[in-house]
Amino acid sequence: MRRKPGALIPIEVSILDAGLDLERRGIEDFHGYLLAAKIADREGARRLLAHGSLYRALGRMERDGLLDSRWEDADLAAAAERPRRRLYRVTLAGARAVALAHAARPAPAARPRTRQAPA
């Protein structure tokens, strides 16, 4: 999806929201699968974000300065007997961008009542 300069598309908002949520819970650096699981959990989705969609968005956001990334320590991965993870972190610019995106989003309209309360 193309976006206007400075604007975030929905998947980027989801990634930044999930990343900041993880940060608030003490997980400052997160990897792709953890992020996909967090997004599914937050949004009540049954399926995880596709590999292609997730990693394409992460790469683009890193290039735009919304995220930082690094490889985790190879010794840690080896000790856990698993492949090395790429770890991401939301940058200050990312946190600002998502705050702006939320501020710009119109407040949801109140739902019309369809049923009268019993008298």
Partner: peptide
């Protein structure tokens, strides 16, 4: 290599989780 390693780690994490 970055893309291959990243997907490999993701697959491992998904299967393990």
């Amino acid at each position: 290599d970055r893309r291959r390693d990243e997907i490999d780690a993701d697959l491992w994490d998904q299967v393990d989780g």
